[in-house]
Amino acid sequence: MELKEKEIKLNRELSELDKFALEFLSILKKYTDYVIISGYVAILLGRTRATDDIDVFIKPISKQIFSSLYRELKENGFWCLNAESEEELYSYLEDKLAIRFARKRLSTPNFEIKFPKDKLDEQAFDNAITVITKQGKIIISELERQIAFKKYYLESNKDNEDALHIEELFRGKIDYDKVNKYRELIEKRKKEHGNKW
C-alpha cells in the first residue's frame, strides 16, 4: 500500500464488500460526486472487521438527476430499503436523511447515501483521497477527518479501533494539527446539535 499526495495504491485482493462497493459506485459516480466516510474506509485499508453498510455523502442533485440514478440502480439489480417511490426517496434526501441501497433480495451490505447537512459535512469532499484498486477507484475522505470523526464524534469502541488502525498504518504521515482542527469543529457541532445529529 502506498500513500502519495492524495492517492493510495492498493493491490489488495478484492473482498465481496469491495466488489459491491465498486459496482454501486460505478453507477453513482455518473450522476454526482461522492465521498465515502464510514468504517468501510478502515476496512478497505486492511482493518480486520466487516460491516453492514457503507456511508457516503453525495453532492446534492436535482430530482430529475436522482430519478435517472434511481432508474439505473434498479436496472442493475439494486433496490432501496427505505421506500419504493422516487418522490418519497428524494424527499428523504432533501430532509438530509440517508437512504440505503442493497442488491435485490438482500439487505446487507448496503450503501447509505445522503446529502451533506452542513459545512462540516461538505468539507468531506475537500482533500478527498482516491484509492486505486485493481478493479477501479474509490474516493474516501481524508485520513485526518476519518480519525477525528471516529475518535471525537462517533466514539464507540469500534470507531476508536478503526481510528487506531488508520493511525498505526499511516504513522508519521498523519497531520495532527489537521486532526485537532477537525476536533474543534466537531466539538462546536456537538455543542450546537448534540452527539446524534
Binding site: 473482498s15 466487516a50 433480495r105
Partner: peptide, 25 residues
C-alpha cells in the same frame, strides 16, 4: 497487499455469506 487481504477477506466474506437479511431489516 495481496497476502494480507486474503486473510482479511476470510472475515469479510464469511460475514456477508452468513447474513440474515430479514432480521437485518
Amino acid at each position: 497487499d495481496e497476502e494480507w487481504s486474503k486473510q482479511q477477506n476470510l472475515i469479510i466474506n464469511s460475514q456477508l455469506q452468513g447474513a440474515d437479511h430479514k432480521t437485518y431489516l
